[in-house]
């Protein structure tokens, strides 16, 4: 394996982390509209906090997919065609989430507006769940043929580990969303967001314990990467405890760093566990190595140059868009804006 192949494997992992950290908060906010807000105005207020950002955040998923296609095309091809229906449902949910913001503003009746908020909520529940399933499906030994094609059965998609994985990513998205709301709002909502996060963290521990067990039965992580796997599992629990304490004691910045780190450690666990493969076959001869699925050295060099030039520019304005619009929104202020005819 060359250095650039390793670099791009890491870049893809990093892009998934950034995607989960940023858009995970958006999914969490969407979910929180049913748990934290009690009426239409409060729901709109919650969505207002992510209004200018969710679309850009989603681009990290597109970029991760594009980077996968560009640098490790064999992985992209096998994974996307193999988990066909799972990815299809992710897409449908992403599509509904994507139009729900604009359509709920544009809807002609109150009923229509409320309807699109429900659409937003339901898709925000499903996207992280389905992605969590995908992340935990793709680390298990799969029926792969000599051409790298995956012929999944129902059990390869829906199994104990993948359901736990789905729950895990959904729960962390919700924590992330609540922590984000605590940072971006003022008043009662801010207070309730931290309380809810604190309480919901209790779900994380049983899920984590069950994942530790399921990883043993359904993957070969412990055989191949015992130390690294254990280190990351311990880190996951530690970060969870840290996140809960931070939420309980209203340390809002710490809380969001903790839930973001939780995403990061989960993705690191997955990417380290797979290494040096991208997909593991039931028949070991058919497992796909990073170096087998990679693009040519020339393409990787081009891609690296492009990344080094474009990423800093892109990050600069991306961060600016957050910083320049960063303020706490209170319910009173938001109502005033609504009365002044501001639609968003």
């Amino acid at each position: 394996m060359s250095f650039l192949q390793l670099l791009w494997y890491a870049v893809i992992g990093l892009l998934f982390i950034i995607f989960l950290v940023l858009d995970g908060a958006d999914f969490g906010v969407g979910m929180a509209t049913r748990f934290l807000a009690s009426n239409y105005t409060e729901r709109k207020l919650l969505l207002r906090t992510i209004g200018p950002h969710w679309d850009g955040n989603e681009v990290f998923l597109v970029t991760a997919g594009g980077a996968m296609f560009a640098s490790l095309p064999g992985w992209y091809a096998s994974l996307f065609s193999g988990f066909y229906l799972l990815l299809f449902f992710v897409l449908i949910a992403l599509i509904f989430r994507g139009v729900s913001f604009e359509f709920s503003d544009a809807a002609l009746t109150e009923k229509g507006k409320r309807g699109w908020l429900w659409v937003n909520f339901i898709s925000c529940l499903f996207i992280p769940f389905l992605l969590g399933m995908l992340f935990t499906d793709m680390i298990q030994p799969l029926p792969i043929d000599a051409g790298g094609n995956i012929f999944v059965s129902f059990y390869n998609v829906v199994n104990p580990l993948s359901i736990l994985g789905g729950l895990c990513i959904t729960a962390v998205s919700l924590y992330q969303g609540l922590n984000y709301i605590a940072l971006r709002t003022e008043g009662l909502i801010r207070y309730h967001a931290s309380r809810l996060a604190d309480n919901l963290y209790w779900i994380a521990y049983p899920v984590e314990v069950l994942i530790v067990i399921a990883l043993y039965f359904q993957t070969n992580f412990y055989e191949r990467h015992l130390v690294a796997t254990l280190v990351f599992l311990v880190l996951i629990v530690a970060v969870t405890v840290w996140g809960q304490i931070a939420a309980a004691t209203d340390k809002e910045i710490q809380a969001i760093i903790a839930s973001s780190s939780l995403f990061a450690v989960i993705v690191m666990l997955i990417f380290t566990g797979l290494f040096p493969y991208v997909l593991i076959a039931n028949n070991p001869a058919h497992s796909l190595l990073i170096k087998e699925v990679s693009s040519s050295p020339y393409t990787l060099v081009i891609m690296t140059i492009v990344l080094v030039i474009l990423l800093p520019i892109m990050l600069a304005y991306f961060i600016w868009s957050y910083v320049s619009q960063w303020h706490r929104i209170s319910l009173e202020e938001f109502k005033k804006d609504l009365d002044n005819g501001e639609t968003y």
């Binding site: 679309d55 850009g56 989603e58 681009v59 597109v62 970029t63 594009g66 980077a67 996968m68 296609f69 560009a70 640098s71 095309p73 064999g74 992209y76 091809a77 693009s295 040519s296 393409t299 081009i302 891609m303 492009v306 990344l307 474009l310 990423l311 892109m314 304005y317 991306f318």
Partner: peptide
């Protein structure tokens, strides 16, 4: 993949981020 991926990834990095 060796050809198509690069323009697609550049499209995302350069264009999609800018517009969204």
């Amino acid at each position: 993949g060796d050809i198509f991926g690069a323009p697609l990834a550049i499209e995302a990095l350069l264009a999609f981020f800018m517009e969204s």
